[in-house]
Design a protein around this nucleic acid. Structure first.
Lengths: 236, 236
DNA sequence: GATTTTTTCCGACTATTTTTCGATTTTATT
DNA sequence: AATAAAATCGAAAAATAGTCGGAAAAAATC
């Protein structure tokens, strides 16, 4: 039995809702960082750089992409680019942020604490796949180059990527409370199963454009995993 | 009904065994390539380069690693290294081959066509995780840097990585024949679920060294997936 | 609205790393 | 031992990343 702030609250069920909202708010706050630039002009430049970087990185991959190309694509000189980002790596790791933030926001808009964890998980996985389809250049960068990178740990992006799986772990816990996810299996293992299956579907599509319809494949995969978890939990 | 060599064989069951062996032989043949060097001296150099590259890439990652460091580690000049590999990228993509070949061989030794597909799948997944633990530098390179890379498609390595999942797809088909994998779900989807879950476990371990015991985690994950597939198939 | 301060931008430069090439050494062949 | 072939290396070129001081633009102050 743990001693903590929750010990003094009356019931557990009513507590779940605000806790979920707090998690999402926390995640969104961390992923959306305001520009520190003073002039409109340079906030525009900032966006131009990020857009150009997304295009060039998406086309050439991080290692093959050249800073000079990105600067040219953004319509500025290379030295100006260095005014904004200390290195190519820094720039690369900055890109996923913006979209991740947008994704988390649209996910928050699409759900609310009254929904069951089961539905929220289904929506989360479905939206992940669909968002990757809609923003395939960004997804290429995130899923194929940055997520698995050894060095994410050294950047501010790490927390954002961890948040992606933290949400799933949280939903797994709620799923256990709701009774459709077994408590016999380790929650981290369950989360790995969910994340891994979904990401594999997305990655395969990014690399081979198979299956053709990622939205459909993502939804089917999500529905199947949830169904399998339910059946598993219903067994003795 | 397809017309082909198999049409003239008597039964289908006896055919399954050689088919499996052929697949494995094919995979192993593709992954193990002999050196084309004429002198012993340079076959030694070749190995020194690959060993050095594994260490340096594993430590620094592909993009940060420097050719000069690898050459120094191998005890040769950088220009000699270029005599062997046309570029850093070429070198990086050559490394996974040797170990993949070794993995496929030890997998073949650990199984035989008399075993059920269920057991062969269990062993495959368990051995994958265990092999990654034993060769963590190599695994880092393969799982975190090369497998997801956009450019694997342009190299000879692509076929070897595809083989890794091809074996799983083949086992899924046999699992359907054996009746413990449902035919209602797409076999590619089932394979994605299996590969994704397993890889996610390995990748998490490589990045965070969690869970502590990868061999145990890999085995548990494999057993759980198979159990879930069995339950799924047993449902109406 | 002129001047001062801050912010942004760029050209020219340096530093680092990759890659090439011809000369040299080593090994195999006769 | 002479010759050919294979392998190695040092030095220099090519490519790319990254720095710096001052000009230009914008904002703030008077």
């Amino acid at each position: 039995m743990q001693i903590g702030p929750e010990s003094f609250t009356a019931a557990k069920a009513p507590e779940a809702a605000p806790e979920w909202d707090l998690l999402l708010d926390d995640v969104i706050a961390r992923s959306s960082r305001e520009s520190e630039r003073k002039q409109d002009r340079s906030r525009r430049t900032e966006k131009q750089i990020l857009n150009a970087a997304l295009r060039v990185f998406g086309r050439d991959g991080i290692s093959r992409a050249r800073i000079a190309d990105i600067a040219a694509e953004a319509g500025i000189s290379t030295s100006t680019l260095y005014e904004y980002y200390a290195s190519k790596e820094d720039l690369a790791y900055e890109i996923p942020m913006t979209h991740l933030s947008e994704f988390f926001c649209s996910y928050r808009d699409a759900t609310n604490a009254e929904m069951s964890a089961r539905d929220r998980l289904l929506i989360y996985l479905t939206m992940s796949a669909d968002y990757a389809r809609e923003h395939s250049e960004w997804a290429r960068l995130l899923y194929l180059e940055i997520w698995p990178s050894v060095f994410v740990g050294e950047t501010g992006l790490k927390a954002n990527i961890d948040d992606f799986t933290r949400i799933i772990r949280h939903l797994v816990e709620q799923g256990m409370d709701e009774g459709w996810i077994t408590r016999k299996a380790n929650k981290y293992e369950t989360a790995a199963l969910i994340v891994g299956s979904t990401n594999q579907t997305i990655i395969t599509w990014l690399l081979y454009r198979k299956p053709r319809n990622l939205t459909k494949a993502g939804t089917e995969m999500a529905e199947r995993i949830i169904r399998m978890l339910e059946i598993e939990a219903s067994q003795a």
